[in-house]
Amino acid sequence: MSAAWQLVWLSIQARPRWFPSLSNPQRNIRKQHANCMQSKMSMGEKTLQIEIVTRRVIRTKPVTTRAEQLAADLSKDIVDGTLAPGARLDEHVLASRFGVSRTPVREALKRLAGLDLVEIRPHRGAVVVDMPATRISELFEALAEAEATCARLAAIKMSILDRERLSTLHEAFCALPDGSEPVRVATCNRSFHEAIYAGCHNGFLSDHVATLRKRLAPYTAAQFRLRSRPFDSAREHTRIVDAILARDGTGAADAARRHVMAVGHAWASWAQANMESDRERIGSSDTISPAMEHTV
């Protein structure tokens, strides 16, 4: 082979080093793509595993315990006014009523005590909280101001649907009979006020006023045991609704404030006339108050 051909041969042999193959970048891209896909698949498997674990945790979450259900039932009776302030909650009677042992009853009463709805007294058992009159008066003042703020904001922020719902609830309340059904009247009254809380479109304020109302629920419900109170309350509600529908924030706030303070005065009138006789009856009973006998 001549020297010239030898030089050409050597050039061909050395080509991969002097001129990198054009297929190498494509090969690298394919390799990187394969690695990326493998990484994504690995991440997808991990995500799937996490989702499976999360679903298992949700599925294995324990259902509501018997004690929680008992606490919910008793708190409803307290909020509705079926269990009056000062009513004794005997564990034996409650266990017999709900068909359970005393253990879940005891746990339920502890839960209610944590909500300040029940007071557990040494050697006397549990009773529905009966706060001092001064403390109740302070709570009514706080509730009046909170309700006034909710009504003022509701007059400004309520949507058309909010206003229609408030009007419907108000009409339903006005259509109720006299105070012969205090629990039903109290339930409808609570729905009316909750519509105003929702209509103010302020979650923090709504939660705050709902907490105050829940704390005072046994006392606000007691007012409807006065025969004239449902009619008076309906008239007070009318002033609130008229102001809200007219977008009169100041008028709505003033009407709501006056309404809540009237509720406080009504409760004081009922308490003064009936509380002493109720306490004597509760003290002479070894099991349960007449108010609770109605629900057993």
Rank of each mutant, 00 (worst) to 15 (best):
A175S: 15
A108T: 00
E181F: 12
P85N: 00
L115G: 01
S284Q: 10
G199N: 05
L10M: 12
F204I: 15
A253D: 01
R215V: 01
R59V: 09
R88T: 02
G249I: 05
V79N: 03
S191N: 13
H92W: 10
Q32F: 14
A210D: 07
T134A: 14
D248P: 08
V185F: 05
I58A: 14
R88V: 02
T220P: 00
D278W: 14
S96V: 04
S233W: 11
T238E: 15
I120T: 00
R227G: 05
R88N: 01
H259Y: 09
R165T: 13
C150I: 03
I196D: 06
N189R: 08
R66H: 04
V105F: 00
D77Y: 07
Q26M: 09
I78W: 01
L117G: 01
L48I: 06
R135Q: 15
H294K: 15
A243M: 10
A113R: 04
A154P: 09
T211G: 14
M131Y: 07
T187M: 12
W9Q: 13
K214E: 11
A186Q: 11
R111V: 05
A144K: 00
R229K: 14
R15P: 01
F192N: 07
S11L: 12
T211Y: 08
D116M: 03
L153E: 08
V129K: 07
E236K: 09
R111C: 02
A14R: 12
H208G: 03
P62G: 05
P25W: 09
V100G: 03
M158E: 07
L117M: 10
C36W: 13
L205N: 07
A155M: 05
L166V: 12
L216N: 00
I120V: 05
P62L: 10
E276Q: 07
S2K: 07
A268P: 00
S180W: 07
G86R: 03
D90H: 05
A243W: 10
Q6G: 09
I244N: 08
I160K: 15
D73Y: 06
P16G: 06
N202I: 02
E171K: 15
I12N: 05
V183G: 04
A186F: 05
E236P: 01
M37I: 08
C200I: 06
L7T: 11
G114K: 04
V127L: 03
R257S: 02
D77E: 08
A144Y: 00
M158Y: 07
Q26P: 03
D130R: 05
F173Q: 07
A195C: 14
P132D: 08
V8A: 14
G199V: 06
V53M: 12
C36Q: 13
V8K: 14
N24I: 15
R257H: 11
A217C: 03
T60W: 09
N202H: 12
E138K: 04
Q272T: 10
W18N: 10
L216A: 01
T103E: 11
P122C: 01
P230N: 09
P218E: 02
S180G: 14
A72P: 00
F204N: 11
S42Q: 14
R165N: 13
I196K: 05
T287D: 14
S285H: 06
M43K: 09
V100Q: 04
D178W: 14
A67E: 04
W5C: 08
R163I: 12
L10G: 10
R124T: 04
E145G: 06
R66S: 07
R281H: 07
Q223C: 15
N202S: 13
R247I: 09
